[in-house]
């Protein structure tokens, strides 16, 4: 069975989720998430590998429309909602260390 949740685990998932946690938050989240995972032991401890997982209420099939141009969102309206755009594209700070 999975090992008890550690402070390092919480710091790791915070990094994966791009969230910064203070030391105090790490302590609190470790205790609180540990309590939820303790409760989840009733599920995690079950021996049910022969049961099919259910990912969705219904069997999902791909739904595709005909490949014909239709009405889509207005590009300027979409870009207007962005924090920063330039030349009809989203603008972000430096990604690979180049000058922004």
């Amino acid at each position: 069975m999975a090992s008890p949740l550690t402070r390092d685990d919480v710091a790791h998932v915070a990094r994966l989720a791009r969230l910064h946690c203070t030391d105090e938050e790490l302590d609190r989240f470790t205790a609180q998430l540990g309590a939820v995972l303790d409760h989840a032991e009733d599920v995690a401890s079950l021996d049910i590998d022969d049961v099919e997982p259910m990912v969705h209420p219904y069997p999902l099939v791909n739904v595709l429309r005909d490949d014909e141009p239709g009405v889509t969102s207005d590009r300027d309206e979409v870009l207007a909602a962005a924090p920063l755009s330039e030349d009809r594209q989203f603008r972000v700070p430096a990604i690979l260390g180049e000058e922004a």
Binding site: R18, L19, H20, V78, A81, A82, P83, L84, F90, V92, P93, A94, I95, G97, A100
Partner: peptide, 17 residues
């Protein structure tokens, strides 16, 4: 990047965090 709040930072990774 595309909508809502952005808190600026020197790199995109830091901006996202």
């Amino acid at each position: 990047v595309r909508f809502g709040l952005r808190v600026d930072a020197p790199t995109t990774g830091e901006m996202m965090e």
